[in-house]
Amino acid sequence: MLAVNVAVFAGVFLHKITLPPYVPYIHLLVDYHFGFTKRALIGAIVSLFSSRVPVWLVFALGGATWLITLGLFVQLFRRTFGLDDEHMPLLIFTAGSPFFFKNFMHTLGHFDIYGCSLAVCLLLLPARSIAFVLLAALFSVILVLIHHIHLLMYVPTIVVIVVLRHYLVQGANRLNLSGGVAAAAAVGALFVAAQFYGSMPVPEAQFVNYLQSRMADPSRSNLLSFSYIWYQPLAKELRDTWMRMPSNLLGIPMFALLIFLHAPLWKYFAGLIRSLAVDWHRRVVISALTAVSLGYFVMFVIVFDYSRWISNWAVCMFLIMHAVKTLPASQTVPPISGDDRKTTVLGWVVTLIPRVGIVRPF
């Protein structure tokens, strides 16, 4: 199954590089030339190294980020569970899931994977001091500057990781509580600024002309067709989403089926939660999972990239599972059985699904 997953990764990548990178490419062009701007951090960093941006940079930068994130996750899995034979089924249902690295490959160049990568870093780093809380706040700030929707996509998961790995273990005191509240307020204020004050202050034609001046090949003006998203108010996004809602809701049965295919994983995760030695920890974990899921529900209402939201929700569940595993347990939870026929069938189905998609399933 691991070998097949590697082949699928390669196949999805070869398919991806044949597609026009409309949204990912324009994100590399937008910077802070016209002042504070939403979705501009990646482009601003790129502008420090190059005044002209080639299209291939989307795939080079996205591919490098994908490889780094994969390496970090494998290291995290090795440290949390181990890369022995008995935990291989769990690795198949996480790293090999169509929700995870295969879909990140399909959305290569999009900003989702940055949230996952920084969350994995927080799971790998020690969480003993207030520095961990402040680092999580810094990561959250970076994510909101990359794209403000991260406030609902990965920032809640980062908050959960901080709560489970720092506050539940180290306890709450005046220093770390005040630091956490201040950090949350700062991230919230930045989100408000990006959402309501980060629109482009110049006419769209002037904005497009500037973007075209940064293109390595200005003749490919079709890649700038998504420039309107820097002018689109929240009300317009809501209207567009609800206009598409009837057709997009048709994908819900498929999403439900994809989630069901991971049944052995969910059963194992539930066992980890039940095995927690402290009842208070169990209630906190359940509340945290609910809060993260509610954040994704809000995204469903606002923006219609449903396949991406479902996929990233699943990734957040996978990452939170690693944090839960580090909490004190009253009993050992048996790993997913590799000898069970049903589990094997589900594992092969999960392995063979190449990705979930961006808006609609597949």
Rank of each mutant, 00 (worst) to 15 (best):
V4T: 11
V6R: 05
A7C: 15
A10W: 11
L14K: 04
L14P: 04
H15V: 07
K16R: 15
L19D: 09
P21V: 11
Y25S: 03
I26T: 08
H27R: 12
L28W: 06
L29M: 00
D31K: 00
G35Y: 14
R39E: 13
I42W: 02
G43M: 05
L57C: 01
L70H: 00
G71Q: 06
L72G: 05
V74S: 05
L76Y: 06
F81Q: 00
G82N: 06
D84F: 11
N103F: 06
F104N: 09
F104C: 03
H106F: 14
D112G: 07
G115I: 05
C121R: 02
P126N: 01
S129N: 02
L134D: 09
A137R: 04
F139P: 03
Y154H: 15
V155T: 09
T157K: 01
I161P: 03
Y167W: 13
L168T: 01
A172W: 14
N176E: 08
G180L: 05
A184P: 06
V187D: 07
A189E: 03
F191A: 08
V192M: 07
A193M: 12
A193P: 01
G198E: 02
S199A: 15
P201G: 02
P203E: 02
Q206Y: 05
F207P: 00
F207I: 00
L211R: 01
L211N: 01
D217R: 10
P218H: 10
R220Q: 15
L223P: 03
S225D: 10
S225L: 10
F226N: 11
F226H: 10
S227N: 06
S227Q: 02
Y228M: 07
Y231K: 01
L238I: 15
M243Q: 13
M243A: 15
R244H: 03
S247Y: 13
G251Y: 01
P253G: 02
A256R: 07
A256K: 08
L258Y: 04
L261A: 05
L272R: 13
L276E: 02
R282T: 08
S287V: 14
T290W: 00
A291Q: 04
S293D: 05
G295F: 12
M299N: 09
F300A: 04
V303T: 01
D305L: 09
Y306L: 15
W313M: 00
I320N: 04
H322Y: 12
A323G: 13
L327V: 04
A329L: 09
V345C: 14
L346I: 01
I353T: 09
R355N: 09
R355W: 13
I358C: 00
I358E: 03
